[in-house]
Nucleic acid binder design. Structure first.
Length: 270
DNA sequence: ACCACAACCTGGCCGC
DNA sequence: TGCGGCCAGGTTGTGG
C-alpha cells in the first residue's frame, strides 16, 4: 500500500522522465477515477500542457504544470503509476492513460478503484489540510510532543491521521511504534518526553530506510518501471503476525485499532 | 475540537 | 471444484 516512502520513490523515479514533457493525449478508461474536474473538462484542460516538475505532499503526488495548475494523484490502497513505451497494451486495472510528447505513456492503474486524480488551479484545495511533513527539518520532537498532548486517541490512530502528520499509514506506524518501543494502544497524550523523542526519531528512520529500499511491495505497489520495492523485507512487525519478535522472540500480535490491522510485540512495546 | 463508524472498491482467501 | 461471504485499509462524510 503506497504510503510516504512509496510515493517518494515514484516521484524520484518519474521526475527525470517527465520533466519538460507535455501531454499529447488522455484516455479515461474508468472516468470516476478523476475526482475534479468533470471528465470532459479533464482531457481538454490537460492536453497541450507541459510538466514543469514533480512534488510530493504526504501520500499525494503532484505534477506542476505550465499554466500553474496541478495534476494530483492519490494511489490509496492499490494504485500505481507505470511508465510504458509507446503503444504498450494497458493492463486490466489501468483506469487512465496519459500519452506524452516523447511517445511514452503513463498508465494510472488501480485494482480496487479507490485511487483518485485531481486537476486543480489551487493545490491547497486538495492537500491544504494535511499535517506536517515528517521528513522536513521543521518537524521537531517539540512540535510532536505539543500536538500529541492534545490527542487522547490511541497513538497508532493518531500517527495514521493525515491531518496530524502527512504520509504515515498503517505499515509505517506499526514499524515506528515498534522501533520506539511504544504500545500502539497507548493514548497519544500519555507519552512521556523520552518516548516522544524516540518516536520522532523512529518515524523518520523508518521512512528514510523504506525510501532507500524503493518502498514496500506488500500488495500492489510497483515502481514506475514495474519493479518491486524491497522495504517489506526489513519490516520488524508489520504484516508479520505470529512470527517471533526480532528482539525477544515473543510472537508478534495482531489486533484491530480503528478497524485497521495492527502488528506489535506485546513484550517490547509498553 | 475530537472521536467513531460506514461507505467506497476488488480480488484473495476461508469454510462448507 | 465451486460458491458465498469476509477481509484488506486511506479517505471522506456523517453523527455524537
Amino acid at each position: 500500500m503506497p504510503e510516504l516512502p512509496e510515493v517518494e520513490v515514484i516521484k524520484r523515479e518519474l521526475a527525470p522522465a517527465l520533466a519538460g514533457r507535455s501531454f499529447r493525449g488522455v484516455t479515461l478508461i474508468w472516468p470516476r477515477t478523476v475526482q475534479i474536474p468533470a471528465a470532459e473538462d479533464f482531457s481538454r484542460r490537460l492536453i497541450g500542457q507541459s510538466i514543469t516538475g514533480l512534488d510530493r505532499r504526504g501520500k499525494y503526488l503532484i505534477f506542476r504544470l505550465s499554466t500553474g495548475e496541478a495534476l494530483i494523484f492519490h494511489l490509496r490502497m492499490s494504485g500505481s503509476l507505470l511508465l510504458k513505451a509507446a503503444s504498450q497494451e494497458p493492463d486490466p486495472h489501468a483506469r487512465a492513460t496519459f500519452l506524452l510528447d516523447d511517445g511514452k505513456e503513463l498508465h494510472f492503474c488501480d485494482r480496487r478503484k479507490l485511487a483518485r486524480i485531481w486537476l486543480v488551479a489551487d493545490e491547497t484545495t486538495v492537500v491544504g489540510r494535511l499535517g506536517p511533513e515528517p521528513l522536513e527539518p521543521g518537524f521537531t520532537a517539540q512540535d510532536l510532543a505539543q500536538q500529541l498532548g492534545k490527542r487522547s486517541a490511541p497513538i497508532k490512530a493518531v500517527l495514521c491521521d493525515q491531518h496530524f502528520l502527512a504520509g504515515v499509514g498503517n505499515m509505517y506506524a506499526d514499524e515506528a511504534l515498534f522501533a520506539a518501543g511504544i504500545h500502539p494502544l497507548r493514548r497519544a497524550n500519555s507519552l512521556c518526553w523520552e518516548e516522544v523523542v524516540r518516536l520522532h526519531g523512529a518515524v523518520r528512520q523508518v521512512l528514510e530506510q523504506a525510501i532507500a529500499s524503493w518502498g514496500a511491495s506488500i500488495s500492489d505497489y510497483r515502481r514506475p518501471g514495474g519493479e518491486l520495492g524491497a522495504a517489506q523485507f526489513a519490516f520488524q512487525v508489520a504484516h508479520r503476525g505470529g512470527e517471533p519478535c526480532p528482539k525477544c522472540s515473543t510472537p508478534i500480535q495482531r489486533i484491530p485499532i480503528r478497524g485497521r490491522g495492527t502488528y506489535f510485540c506485546p513484550r517490547c512495546q509498553k
